[in-house]
């Protein structure tokens, strides 16, 4: 159970794992996530299901090493197993043909974006993907998003690859050039906040996927709560995707620092 079959390094701190999980592979949809424990006594942490293979009975996780638990998961090798994998959790992405969709991802947020890009394309949308990172080495999954994107725009803070600038610059250049019907943004909370502010200015519907702190992932604890449209929501059961214009990102950013 939960055996790691393949492992690939996307960058120094980002690892792709293909994990044996047949029941989850069968029932998952784009937007779903799992909760994983690397070892006994380990913490339960949420990770998006980046891809799944129902024939092989596997799911793909893309993990960024940012701390204790993600570090333990990144250090596992093929043949070893995760102690627990439970899911699929959360609400699936609402996929619809709306016209032109800009999908923008920052850092490891590109992993959860991948299945949405795929599904949006398959639903008949024009998909423009904006990938952003600090520097060239941190741009991940470029090859995987290309087949499903009508255009891929790369943004790096230092200009080492693609265009120099922030993700918002990339998105704005598209907005200025053509009609955009929907923006999907997944990445660090601070990035989603600024994308949301930008698209609000242009009044473009925007969907984000929130990465709050979680424990159970089933609605039991409330650790994942955020304020959306003035109401408290639980990201694990009501989300993880929300109308970005309704999300209180400042509160979310504050709560993400609970243990710092």
């Amino acid at each position: 159970m939960n055996k790691i079959l393949e492992k690939e390094h996307f960058s120094e701190n980002v690892v792709k794992l293909v994990v044996e999980a047949p029941a989850i592979a069968r029932s998952r949809k784009p937007g779903h996530f799992v909760i994983v424990r690397a070892c006994e006594n380990g913490e339960r942490i949420p990770l998006t299901i980046a891809d799944a293979d129902t024939v092989k009975g596997t799911i793909t996780l893309v993990v960024q090493n940012v701390g204790v638990s993600s570090g333990k998961i990144c250090s596992l090798e093929p043949g070893e197993s995760l102690t627990d994998v439970v899911g699929p959790l959360g609400q699936a992405t609402h996929i619809e043909k709306v016209g032109t969709v800009v999908c923008c991802g920052g850092g490891v947020g590109v992993a959860p974006l991948l299945p949405i890009i795929k599904a949006m394309k398959e639903a008949g949308n024009k998909v423009i993907t904006v990938l952003a990172a600090r520097t060239k080495e941190l741009i991940i999954l470029e090859e995987q998003v290309r087949p499903y994107s009508d255009e891929v725009i790369i943004m790096t803070d230092d200009g080492s690859y693609g265009t120099k600038g922030l993700v918002t610059n990339g998105v704005e250049s598209v907005i200025n050039r053509e009609k955009v019907d929907l923006v999907v943004t997944i990445g660090p909370a601070i990035m989603m906040k600024f994308v949301s502010l930008l698209t609000k200015k242009y009044d473009i519907p925007t969907m984000c996927s929130l990465n709050t702190i979680m424990v159970d992932g089933t609605g039991m604890c409330g650790a994942c709560r955020v304020t959306v449209g003035g109401k408290t929501k639980f990201v694990c059961i009501d989300g993880p995707e929300f109308d970005a214009h309704q999300v209180d990102f400042d509160e979310m950013l504050m709560r993400l620092r609970s243990f710092n």
Binding site: V215, C221, A223, V226, T232, E251
Partner: peptide
């Protein structure tokens, strides 16, 4: 399983949590 909150101001500050959590 679902914890109730009171819906009062400041309930989402760090350090306010459900007994379940």
């Amino acid at each position: 399983g679902l914890p109730r909150f009171m819906g009062i101001p400041g309930e989402n500050y760090i350090g306010v949590m459900s007994s379940n959590e």
